[in-house]
Amino acid sequence: MKLQRTIRLRTAAVGALVVSGALVLSACGSDDNSGGSGSETSKAASNIKCDGEGKLLASGSSAQKNAMDVWTQTYQSACSGTQLNYKPTGSGAGIQEFLQGKTAFAGSDSALKPDEVAKSKKVCKSGQAIDLPMVGGPVAVAYKLDGVDDLVLDADTLAKIFDSKITKWNDPAIKKLNPDADLPGTKIQAFHRSDESGTTDNFTKYLNTAAPSFWKHEPAKAWAGKGGQGADGSSGIATNVKQNDGAIGYVELSYATGNDLSTVKLDTGAKEPVEATTDNASKAIADAKVVGQGKDLSLELNYKTKAEDAYPIVLVTYEIVCDKGNKKESLDATKSFLKYTASEDGQKSLAEKGYAPIPDEIITKVRSTVDSLK
Protein backbone atom coordinates (compact mmCIF):
# COMPACT_ATOMS: atom_id res chain seq x y z
CA MET A 1 0.00 0.00 0.00
CA LYS A 2 1.34 3.42 -0.86
CA LEU A 3 1.83 5.78 2.01
CA GLN A 4 1.18 9.41 1.25
CA ARG A 5 1.64 11.36 4.41
CA THR A 6 2.79 14.93 4.50
CA ILE A 7 6.00 15.34 6.43
CA ARG A 8 6.32 18.18 8.88
CA LEU A 9 9.97 18.97 9.22
CA ARG A 10 11.24 20.74 12.27
CA THR A 11 13.09 23.89 11.42
CA ALA A 12 14.56 24.50 14.84
CA ALA A 13 18.27 25.12 14.73
CA VAL A 14 20.46 22.19 15.60
CA GLY A 15 23.87 22.26 17.13
CA ALA A 16 26.74 21.81 14.75
CA LEU A 17 29.07 18.91 15.35
CA VAL A 18 32.62 19.60 14.31
CA VAL A 19 35.34 17.07 14.05
CA SER A 20 39.06 16.60 13.87
CA GLY A 21 41.46 13.75 13.26
CA ALA A 22 42.67 11.70 10.34
CA LEU A 23 40.30 11.22 7.43
CA VAL A 24 40.02 7.63 6.35
CA LEU A 25 37.37 8.32 3.73
CA SER A 26 38.61 7.83 0.18
CA ALA A 27 37.20 10.79 -1.77
CA CYS A 28 38.11 13.42 -4.28
CA GLY A 29 37.52 16.87 -5.53
CA SER A 30 35.96 19.17 -2.93
CA ASP A 31 37.30 21.34 -0.16
CA ASP A 32 37.46 19.81 3.30
CA ASN A 33 35.63 22.30 5.51
CA SER A 34 35.77 20.31 8.72
CA GLY A 35 37.55 21.32 11.87
CA GLY A 36 36.84 22.10 15.48
CA SER A 37 36.54 20.39 18.82
CA GLY A 38 37.99 16.96 19.34
CA SER A 39 35.96 16.69 22.55
CA GLU A 40 32.73 16.92 20.55
CA THR A 41 33.96 14.13 18.27
CA SER A 42 34.84 11.99 21.28
CA LYS A 43 31.43 12.60 22.84
CA ALA A 44 29.60 11.53 19.68
CA ALA A 45 31.93 8.58 19.15
CA SER A 46 31.29 7.30 22.66
CA ASN A 47 27.65 6.70 21.73
CA ILE A 48 28.49 4.53 18.73
CA LYS A 49 28.10 0.77 19.04
CA CYS A 50 30.75 -0.90 16.90
CA ASP A 51 29.93 -4.17 15.19
CA GLY A 52 31.87 -6.00 12.52
CA GLU A 53 35.45 -5.53 11.36
CA GLY A 54 37.37 -5.20 8.13
CA LYS A 55 36.68 -3.10 5.05
CA LEU A 56 33.28 -1.55 4.40
CA LEU A 57 32.99 -0.38 0.80
CA ALA A 58 30.37 2.05 -0.48
CA SER A 59 30.02 4.55 -3.31
CA GLY A 60 27.60 6.90 -5.00
CA SER A 61 26.22 10.37 -4.38
CA SER A 62 28.79 13.15 -4.33
CA ALA A 63 26.07 15.38 -2.86
CA GLN A 64 26.57 13.70 0.51
CA LYS A 65 30.36 13.64 0.28
CA ASN A 66 30.81 16.37 2.90
CA ALA A 67 28.32 14.65 5.22
CA MET A 68 30.20 11.39 4.73
CA ASP A 69 33.43 13.16 5.65
CA VAL A 70 31.97 14.11 9.03
CA TRP A 71 30.31 10.76 9.63
CA THR A 72 33.38 8.76 8.65
CA GLN A 73 35.79 10.69 10.83
CA THR A 74 33.58 10.33 13.89
CA TYR A 75 32.76 6.68 13.22
CA GLN A 76 36.41 5.74 12.61
CA SER A 77 37.44 7.36 15.89
CA ALA A 78 35.12 4.93 17.67
CA CYS A 79 35.40 1.84 15.46
CA SER A 80 39.02 1.49 14.40
CA GLY A 81 38.45 -2.14 13.47
CA THR A 82 36.30 -1.12 10.50
CA GLN A 83 37.85 0.68 7.54
CA LEU A 84 35.12 2.59 5.74
CA ASN A 85 35.79 3.58 2.15
CA TYR A 86 33.12 5.75 0.51
CA LYS A 87 33.82 6.90 -3.04
CA PRO A 88 31.72 9.86 -4.33
CA THR A 89 31.41 8.47 -7.85
CA GLY A 90 27.92 9.88 -8.48
CA SER A 91 24.52 8.33 -7.83
CA GLY A 92 24.30 6.44 -11.11
CA ALA A 93 27.71 4.82 -10.75
CA GLY A 94 27.05 4.04 -7.09
CA ILE A 95 23.83 2.21 -7.86
CA GLN A 96 25.51 0.22 -10.62
CA GLU A 97 28.35 -0.86 -8.34
CA PHE A 98 25.84 -1.90 -5.69
CA LEU A 99 23.80 -3.89 -8.24
CA GLN A 100 27.03 -5.59 -9.33
CA GLY A 101 27.68 -6.69 -5.74
CA LYS A 102 30.81 -4.56 -5.39
CA THR A 103 29.67 -2.48 -2.39
CA ALA A 104 27.81 -2.92 0.88
CA PHE A 105 25.57 0.08 0.25
CA ALA A 106 25.17 2.95 -2.19
CA GLY A 107 24.32 6.63 -1.88
CA SER A 108 21.80 8.09 -4.33
CA ASP A 109 20.11 11.48 -4.64
CA SER A 110 17.09 9.92 -6.30
CA ALA A 111 15.10 6.85 -5.35
CA LEU A 112 15.57 3.53 -7.11
CA LYS A 113 13.70 2.99 -10.35
CA PRO A 114 11.48 -0.11 -10.71
CA ASP A 115 13.98 -1.80 -13.04
CA GLU A 116 16.78 -1.17 -10.53
CA VAL A 117 14.71 -2.73 -7.76
CA ALA A 118 14.13 -5.75 -10.01
CA LYS A 119 17.85 -6.07 -10.74
CA SER A 120 18.67 -5.79 -7.03
CA LYS A 121 17.00 -9.13 -6.33
CA LYS A 122 20.05 -10.84 -7.85
CA VAL A 123 22.29 -9.19 -5.26
CA CYS A 124 19.81 -9.24 -2.38
CA LYS A 125 19.32 -13.01 -2.60
CA SER A 126 16.27 -13.22 -0.36
CA GLY A 127 15.01 -9.64 -0.66
CA GLN A 128 15.47 -6.43 -2.61
CA ALA A 129 17.10 -3.01 -2.38
CA ILE A 130 15.35 -0.25 -0.43
CA ASP A 131 15.79 3.52 -0.12
CA LEU A 132 16.65 4.97 3.30
CA PRO A 133 16.50 8.81 3.35
CA MET A 134 19.52 9.96 5.36
CA VAL A 135 20.19 13.59 4.50
CA GLY A 136 18.40 16.46 2.79
CA GLY A 137 19.32 19.90 1.56
CA PRO A 138 19.11 22.55 -1.13
CA VAL A 139 20.60 22.34 -4.59
CA ALA A 140 22.09 25.80 -5.00
CA VAL A 141 22.45 27.50 -8.37
CA ALA A 142 25.96 28.92 -8.06
CA TYR A 143 27.36 31.59 -10.33
CA LYS A 144 30.32 33.90 -10.89
CA LEU A 145 29.65 37.24 -12.52
CA ASP A 146 32.01 40.13 -11.83
CA GLY A 147 30.18 43.09 -10.33
CA VAL A 148 26.98 41.17 -9.58
CA ASP A 149 26.65 39.90 -6.01
CA ASP A 150 22.86 39.65 -5.85
CA LEU A 151 21.04 37.76 -8.60
CA VAL A 152 17.42 36.66 -8.93
CA LEU A 153 16.24 34.07 -11.47
CA ASP A 154 13.04 32.09 -11.89
CA ALA A 155 12.32 28.59 -13.20
CA ASP A 156 11.60 29.75 -16.76
CA THR A 157 14.83 31.73 -16.99
CA LEU A 158 16.89 28.91 -15.51
CA ALA A 159 15.38 26.48 -18.01
CA LYS A 160 16.33 28.78 -20.89
CA ILE A 161 19.85 29.31 -19.56
CA PHE A 162 20.58 25.60 -19.11
CA ASP A 163 19.05 24.74 -22.49
CA SER A 164 21.17 27.40 -24.27
CA LYS A 165 18.18 29.60 -25.15
CA ILE A 166 19.60 32.49 -23.10
CA THR A 167 23.31 32.98 -23.75
CA LYS A 168 24.21 36.46 -22.42
CA TRP A 169 23.94 37.82 -18.91
CA ASN A 170 22.30 41.05 -20.06
CA ASP A 171 19.41 39.18 -21.69
CA PRO A 172 16.08 41.03 -21.27
CA ALA A 173 14.59 38.17 -19.25
CA ILE A 174 17.40 38.40 -16.67
CA LYS A 175 17.23 42.22 -16.67
CA LYS A 176 13.52 42.08 -15.89
CA LEU A 177 14.19 40.02 -12.78
CA ASN A 178 17.14 42.21 -11.74
CA PRO A 179 16.21 45.83 -12.61
CA ASP A 180 18.79 47.36 -10.27
CA ALA A 181 21.73 45.14 -11.29
CA ASP A 182 24.46 46.28 -13.68
CA LEU A 183 24.37 43.18 -15.86
CA PRO A 184 27.28 42.81 -18.33
CA GLY A 185 27.06 41.29 -21.78
CA THR A 186 29.29 38.44 -20.66
CA LYS A 187 28.68 35.09 -22.30
CA ILE A 188 26.96 32.58 -20.03
CA GLN A 189 28.93 29.41 -19.36
CA ALA A 190 26.42 26.88 -18.04
CA PHE A 191 27.98 23.84 -16.36
CA HIS A 192 26.16 20.55 -15.84
CA ARG A 193 27.16 17.13 -14.51
CA SER A 194 28.95 14.94 -17.04
CA ASP A 195 28.37 11.83 -14.90
CA GLU A 196 25.00 10.33 -14.10
CA SER A 197 23.79 12.08 -10.99
CA GLY A 198 20.83 12.21 -8.64
CA THR A 199 21.54 15.92 -8.33
CA THR A 200 20.89 16.27 -12.06
CA ASP A 201 17.75 14.15 -11.69
CA ASN A 202 16.39 16.46 -8.98
CA PHE A 203 17.45 19.65 -10.76
CA THR A 204 15.79 18.60 -14.01
CA LYS A 205 12.68 17.45 -12.14
CA TYR A 206 12.46 21.00 -10.82
CA LEU A 207 12.90 22.52 -14.29
CA ASN A 208 10.44 20.10 -15.89
CA THR A 209 7.84 20.65 -13.16
CA ALA A 210 8.21 24.39 -12.54
CA ALA A 211 8.99 25.45 -16.14
CA PRO A 212 7.26 22.88 -18.37
CA SER A 213 6.91 25.32 -21.28
CA PHE A 214 10.67 25.81 -21.53
CA TRP A 215 12.18 22.54 -20.26
CA LYS A 216 10.86 19.77 -22.48
CA HIS A 217 13.45 17.14 -21.50
CA GLU A 218 12.40 14.27 -19.28
CA PRO A 219 14.04 14.35 -15.84
CA ALA A 220 16.93 11.91 -15.64
CA LYS A 221 20.28 11.28 -13.98
CA ALA A 222 22.00 11.86 -17.32
CA TRP A 223 22.03 15.45 -18.62
CA ALA A 224 19.75 16.01 -21.60
CA GLY A 225 19.85 19.80 -22.06
CA LYS A 226 21.34 21.40 -25.15
CA GLY A 227 24.82 22.88 -25.10
CA GLY A 228 26.60 23.83 -21.92
CA GLN A 229 29.74 22.23 -20.53
CA GLY A 230 30.04 19.02 -18.55
CA ALA A 231 32.00 18.62 -15.32
CA ASP A 232 32.61 15.53 -13.24
CA GLY A 233 30.90 15.50 -9.86
CA SER A 234 29.64 18.38 -7.73
CA SER A 235 33.23 19.31 -6.98
CA GLY A 236 33.93 19.62 -10.72
CA ILE A 237 31.04 22.02 -11.24
CA ALA A 238 32.02 24.10 -8.19
CA THR A 239 35.62 24.35 -9.39
CA ASN A 240 34.62 25.41 -12.91
CA VAL A 241 32.14 28.02 -11.70
CA LYS A 242 34.76 29.45 -9.34
CA GLN A 243 37.35 29.72 -12.11
CA ASN A 244 35.24 31.23 -14.92
CA ASP A 245 33.59 34.64 -15.05
CA GLY A 246 30.09 34.27 -16.46
CA ALA A 247 29.73 30.72 -15.19
CA ILE A 248 26.66 29.15 -13.62
CA GLY A 249 26.02 25.61 -12.37
CA TYR A 250 23.97 23.57 -9.90
CA VAL A 251 25.60 22.11 -6.79
CA GLU A 252 24.63 21.13 -3.28
CA LEU A 253 24.78 24.09 -0.92
CA SER A 254 27.81 22.71 0.93
CA TYR A 255 29.86 22.90 -2.28
CA ALA A 256 28.78 26.49 -2.90
CA THR A 257 29.57 27.67 0.63
CA GLY A 258 32.77 25.63 0.78
CA ASN A 259 34.03 27.35 -2.36
CA ASP A 260 32.74 30.86 -1.46
CA LEU A 261 30.41 30.91 -4.47
CA SER A 262 27.52 33.33 -4.91
CA THR A 263 24.13 31.65 -5.23
CA VAL A 264 20.95 32.61 -7.07
CA LYS A 265 17.80 33.66 -5.25
CA LEU A 266 14.68 32.07 -6.76
CA ASP A 267 11.54 33.92 -7.73
CA THR A 268 9.01 31.20 -6.90
CA GLY A 269 5.89 33.35 -6.92
CA ALA A 270 6.18 33.98 -3.19
CA LYS A 271 6.28 37.57 -1.92
CA GLU A 272 10.07 37.70 -1.91
CA PRO A 273 12.80 35.79 -3.81
CA VAL A 274 14.00 32.79 -1.83
CA GLU A 275 17.62 32.16 -0.91
CA ALA A 276 19.20 28.70 -0.89
CA THR A 277 19.56 27.95 2.82
CA THR A 278 19.09 24.87 4.97
CA ASP A 279 16.08 26.35 6.74
CA ASN A 280 14.45 27.39 3.45
CA ALA A 281 15.06 23.92 2.01
CA SER A 282 13.47 22.42 5.12
CA LYS A 283 10.30 24.40 4.43
CA ALA A 284 10.15 22.83 0.96
CA ILE A 285 10.97 19.31 2.17
CA ALA A 286 8.09 19.70 4.62
CA ASP A 287 5.77 19.30 1.61
CA ALA A 288 7.25 15.91 0.71
CA LYS A 289 5.23 12.69 0.86
CA VAL A 290 6.34 9.16 1.69
CA VAL A 291 5.52 7.00 -1.33
CA GLY A 292 7.70 3.94 -0.72
CA GLN A 293 6.21 0.49 -0.28
CA GLY A 294 7.03 -1.95 2.49
CA LYS A 295 10.32 -0.99 4.14
CA ASP A 296 11.20 1.39 1.33
CA LEU A 297 11.05 5.02 2.48
CA SER A 298 11.37 6.93 -0.79
CA LEU A 299 9.86 10.42 -0.87
CA GLU A 300 7.96 12.51 -3.41
CA LEU A 301 9.13 16.14 -3.35
CA ASN A 302 7.03 19.19 -4.24
CA TYR A 303 9.10 21.25 -6.69
CA LYS A 304 6.28 23.74 -7.34
CA THR A 305 5.82 24.96 -3.78
CA LYS A 306 5.14 28.68 -3.45
CA ALA A 307 5.18 28.74 0.32
CA GLU A 308 6.92 31.75 1.81
CA ASP A 309 10.67 31.18 2.26
CA ALA A 310 10.42 27.67 0.78
CA TYR A 311 13.38 26.92 -1.51
CA PRO A 312 12.07 24.36 -4.01
CA ILE A 313 15.26 22.92 -5.57
CA VAL A 314 15.94 20.30 -2.94
CA LEU A 315 17.13 16.75 -2.86
CA VAL A 316 17.16 13.91 -0.40
CA THR A 317 20.08 11.52 -0.43
CA TYR A 318 19.21 7.88 0.21
CA GLU A 319 21.42 5.07 1.45
CA ILE A 320 20.52 2.04 -0.65
CA VAL A 321 20.85 -1.35 0.97
CA CYS A 322 19.22 -4.79 0.83
CA ASP A 323 16.30 -5.32 3.17
CA LYS A 324 17.31 -9.00 3.22
CA GLY A 325 20.26 -10.85 1.74
CA ASN A 326 23.03 -8.42 2.64
CA LYS A 327 26.54 -9.87 2.54
CA LYS A 328 27.28 -11.62 5.82
CA GLU A 329 30.83 -10.32 5.98
CA SER A 330 29.71 -6.67 5.89
CA LEU A 331 26.20 -6.77 7.38
CA ASP A 332 27.19 -5.99 10.98
CA ALA A 333 29.45 -3.09 10.02
CA THR A 334 26.83 -1.72 7.61
CA LYS A 335 24.16 -1.73 10.29
CA SER A 336 26.52 -0.20 12.83
CA PHE A 337 27.51 2.67 10.53
CA LEU A 338 23.96 3.39 9.33
CA LYS A 339 22.68 3.31 12.92
CA TYR A 340 25.15 6.08 13.69
CA THR A 341 24.28 8.20 10.62
CA ALA A 342 20.58 7.94 11.47
CA SER A 343 21.16 8.64 15.16
CA GLU A 344 20.53 11.98 16.83
CA ASP A 345 24.28 12.65 16.92
CA GLY A 346 24.70 11.70 13.27
CA GLN A 347 21.85 13.90 12.11
CA LYS A 348 22.89 16.88 14.26
CA SER A 349 26.32 16.82 12.63
CA LEU A 350 24.83 17.86 9.28
CA ALA A 351 23.72 21.44 9.91
CA GLU A 352 27.10 23.17 9.69
CA LYS A 353 27.77 21.54 6.32
CA GLY A 354 24.66 22.96 4.69
CA TYR A 355 22.48 19.85 5.00
CA ALA A 356 19.01 19.46 6.50
CA PRO A 357 18.46 16.62 8.99
CA ILE A 358 15.70 14.17 8.08
CA PRO A 359 12.38 14.84 9.92
CA ASP A 360 11.81 12.95 13.16
CA GLU A 361 8.83 11.04 11.75
CA ILE A 362 10.94 9.61 8.94
CA ILE A 363 14.32 9.17 10.62
CA THR A 364 12.61 7.12 13.34
CA LYS A 365 11.41 4.73 10.64
CA VAL A 366 14.90 4.68 9.13
CA ARG A 367 16.37 3.61 12.47
CA SER A 368 13.82 0.83 12.83
CA THR A 369 14.48 -0.37 9.29
CA VAL A 370 18.25 -0.42 9.81
CA ASP A 371 17.74 -2.58 12.91
CA SER A 372 15.76 -5.06 10.82
CA LEU A 373 18.31 -5.48 8.00
CA LYS A 374 19.33 -9.09 7.38
Rank of each mutant, 00 (worst) to 15 (best):
E308Q: 10
E308I: 11
E308A: 13
E308Y: 08
E308T: 12
E308G: 07
E308W: 10
D309F: 13
D309G: 13
A310V: 11
Y311L: 00
Y311I: 08
L315T: 07
V316F: 02
V316W: 00
T317W: 02
T317M: 02
T317F: 02
T317Y: 01
Y318P: 01
Y318V: 00
E319T: 12
I320A: 02
C322Y: 00
C322F: 03
D323V: 02
D323S: 01
D323H: 04
K324S: 10
G325I: 07
G325T: 01
G325Y: 06
G325Q: 04
N326F: 02
N326C: 11
K327V: 14
K327R: 12
K328M: 12
K328P: 10
K328A: 15
E329S: 15
E329Q: 14
L331S: 09
D332P: 05
D332S: 15
T334W: 04
T334I: 08
T334A: 07
T334Q: 08
T334N: 06
T334Y: 02
K335F: 03
K335V: 06
S336R: 03
S336M: 09
S336G: 12
S336A: 14
S336N: 07
F337C: 06
L338S: 01
K339W: 10
K339G: 13
Y340H: 02
Y340Q: 03
Y340S: 00
Y340E: 00
T341E: 05
A342D: 08
A342M: 10
S343E: 09
E344C: 08
E344H: 10
E344N: 12
E344M: 07
D345A: 13
D345Y: 07
D345I: 03
G346R: 04
G346V: 04
G346E: 04
Q347W: 08
Q347L: 08
Q347V: 08
K348M: 13
S349D: 06
S349K: 03
S349W: 04
S349L: 06
L350A: 10
A351G: 15
A351K: 14
E352W: 11
E352H: 14
E352A: 15
